[in-house]
């Protein structure tokens, strides 16, 4: 609660939160607010410029781009949250285990993380998505996989410190099992940093997922995913500028929102992490 109060007084946190609130509203209320159905084809109105009927113009199937963007907010936010939840969860678990246990387990796990990190991430995500078959869920898994090491490395560093704390030593003496200590002591003590990193990573996750859709490996048509819309809009860039421009602006807004909120969170919660 204290955190929230401090945050609300921080102007950039408020700005970030404000942007995200708008996005969330758009996502939740798309069904009510959107002037058109996002998948409704109207071939006689294809590629109309922005105007009173269609604020952001129409696409090559005559669909209203503004409505599609509103529904698209659902997809992008969902991608962001799931990616971060999966990557953050698994990464924290791996990092905590490695940091707490140390020894060869630590060595092995961290080498595996090194392998993933030194792999060009977009290529890795691309190959993974191609291997699992293109779908939104698989894209989420692929992006999450690529992001695991980020969390694992950070949590491991924290776990190294936490494991020497008196209360950890005490429960070990008291006969607590490793799993119990990791879950009860190590992980909760890393939570703050995980939350900060998660907020900062959300933006990245949305960006990478959009990149995957841009190269055709994410959301499947007619889903109004923003990256996929830009991908198609690119074919019409020279004459129909609005098609690729608006979805990109919305990606930009959303990620800006997460980034400034994350920065502010970091200042408040965890001054140790520095980018």
């Amino acid at each position: 609660m204290l955190t929230l109060r401090i945050l609300s007084r921080n102007p950039s946190a408020a700005a970030g939160g404000g942007i995200l609130a708008v996005m969330v509203c758009m996502a939740l209320l798309a069904g009510v607010l959107a002037p058109y159905e996002p998948v409704e084809i109207n071939l006689s109105e294809r590629l109309q410029g922005p105007g009173a009927d269609h604020w952001f113009g129409t696409d090559e199937m005559g669909r209203d781009i503004f409505s599609r963007i509103m529904y698209g907010a659902r997809i992008s936010l969902r991608i962001g949250f799931f990616v971060v939840a999966i990557a953050g969860g698994l990464g924290a678990l791996i990092g905590a285990t490695a940091g707490y246990l140390g020894g060869w387990v630590d060595n092995l796990m961290m080498r595996v993380m090194d392998v993933i990190i030194s792999f060009p991430s977009l290529v890795l995500a691309m190959a993974l998505a191609a291997a699992m078959g293109p779908s939104l869920n698989n894209a989420i898994l692929a992006v999450a996989f690529v992001m695991i090491p980020k969390f694992a490395r950070m949590v491991r560093g924290e776990a190294l410190a936490v494991r020497e704390m008196p209360f950890v030593l005490a429960s070990r003496v008291a006969g607590a099992g490793h799993a119990w200590i990791i879950l009860r002591h190590i992980l909760p003590n890393c939570l703050n940093s995980v939350i900060v990193l998660a907020t900062l990573t959300l933006g990245d996750a949305i960006l990478i997922a959009a990149s995957l859709s841009f190269i055709g490996l994410g959301a499947q048509p007619p889903m109004p995913e923003w990256g996929a819309m830009i991908s198609v809009g690119r074919k019409f860039l020279m004459d129909q500028w609005w098609y690729a421009t608006f979805p990109g602006l919305f990606i930009l807004f959303t990620v800006v929102g997460f980034n400034i909120l994350g920065d502010a969170l970091r200042d408040v919660l965890d001054p140790r992490i520095r980018r």
Binding site: L207, A210, S211, F214, I230, A244, G248, L252, V256, N259
Partner: peptide
Amino acid sequence: VIGVSTPVFWLGLM
């Protein structure tokens, strides 16, 4: 802030 939040592919198109 805009820099770290811009999708590279979209920036290229713009």
